[in-house]
Simulated assay, not measured.
Amino acid sequence: MLADFVYSSTTRGKEGITQYLAGPAPGALIAGAGDLAQTIAGNGELKGKTLADHLKAWTPGSSLWYTKAATDRLIFDNIQAMIDPNYRQSFNRYERRMKKEFGQTFWWAPGDNLPTRAPRLR
């Protein structure tokens, strides 16, 4: 994580050094307050995707490895679809980035209510 800050002011998760050093709970508060302050100051727009990301960060159990795919697809993707008019483009960008950076595809793609196939276990 600290190596990310050598080349960038934020991590891949868009966290700054302040959020990283403060820890998860205070970091989430700092990130939310920063987004709200930018919106109030007129320097940014609080988009549906940003709001959905904050909701996801504050939901207990949303990052458990054994429930993450289900909670992402069944809950958070639907929340984002309700509040973000450009949700489909956002999901497509995410899929392209995962393919480009990690060579991965999804067995249960973002925005899909059910998987289209079973996972490939190797």
Rank of each mutant, 00 (worst) to 15 (best):
T11C: 08
E101K: 12
A41I: 01
T39L: 02
A69M: 10
V6T: 14
S8M: 14
S63D: 14
Q80F: 00
K49W: 06
T105Q: 14
R117G: 10
K47F: 00
P119E: 11
R12C: 08
N78W: 03
G34F: 00
L64C: 03
F102I: 01
S8I: 01
W65I: 08
Q38K: 14
K68A: 11
P85L: 01
T50V: 09
I40K: 03
M82P: 00
K100I: 09
R120L: 14
T59K: 06
A41L: 13
A41E: 13
K47T: 15
M98A: 11
F5L: 15
T116A: 15
L121M: 08
M1D: 07
K100C: 02
I17S: 05
D77G: 03
A70P: 00
E45H: 15
Y94R: 06
L51P: 00
A70N: 05
K47I: 04
W65A: 05
R73F: 05
L64A: 13
V6I: 14
Y94G: 01
R96K: 15
Y7G: 13
K56M: 07
T105A: 11
S90H: 12
D84E: 15
G23W: 07
A109K: 15
A52P: 07
I83G: 04
E95G: 03
S62N: 15
K99L: 15
P119L: 08
W58R: 06
L55F: 14
Y7N: 10
P115A: 14
I30V: 09
Q19C: 06
P119R: 07
T39K: 02
T39D: 03
A22C: 12
W65G: 00
M1W: 03
D112G: 01
W107E: 08
F102V: 02
D72M: 05
R120T: 12
